[in-house]
């Protein structure tokens, strides 16, 4: 089955992100296909390269990055959500004259249209909100 996953929660504020990560891993383990991960609203913070969790705590953005790389998953951070939370790629950093880029490699920034597109391509779209 083709799944898309929508992540609404910030990495350490809500359980949404970790639950979504475990669900995605389980779906892949069962042989399902992930069409797209869509990081929406506070979920955009999962794409930050600037998170430094304590050593004895789980590195949620790092785990997402590893999973995305391993399975070559299309991972999109909602542009409107990301920009205002300081998640910016090189192009946006240049455009807005910021001295740092903060998007993890493997993620891309794009519009809400990518969520609609994912819905069109997927058998199931599963949202992790809380």
């Amino acid at each position: 089955m083709k799944f898309s996953i929508v992540i609404h929660g910030a990495p350490w504020s809500a359980n949404a992100s970790l639950s979504a990560l475990r669900f995605t891993e389980a779906a892949l383990d069962c042989g399902h296909e992930i069409v797209r991960l869509f990081f929406y609203q506070d979920g955009a913070s999962n794409g930050s390269s600037l998170c430094v969790p304590p050593q004895d705590e789980i590195d949620i953005p790092g785990l997402w990055q590893a999973l995305i790389k391993k399975h070559e998953i299309d991972a999109v951070v909602c542009a409107a959500s990301a920009l205002k939370r300081g998640i910016i790629d090189k192009a946006e950093a240049d455009r807005y004259e910021k001295n740092v880029e903060s998007l993890l490699a493997g993620f891309s920034v794009s519009g809400l249209g990518q969520l609609i597109d994912a819905c069109g391509q997927s058998d199931r779209v599963v949202s992790f909100v809380m």
Partner: peptide, 14 residues
């Protein structure tokens, strides 16, 4: 890179 939104059969959203 994500594909640009394509025209799919219209889905119903609630």
């Amino acid at each position: 890179m994500p594909s640009s939104p394509q025209t799919h059969t219209a889905h119903s959203y609630l």
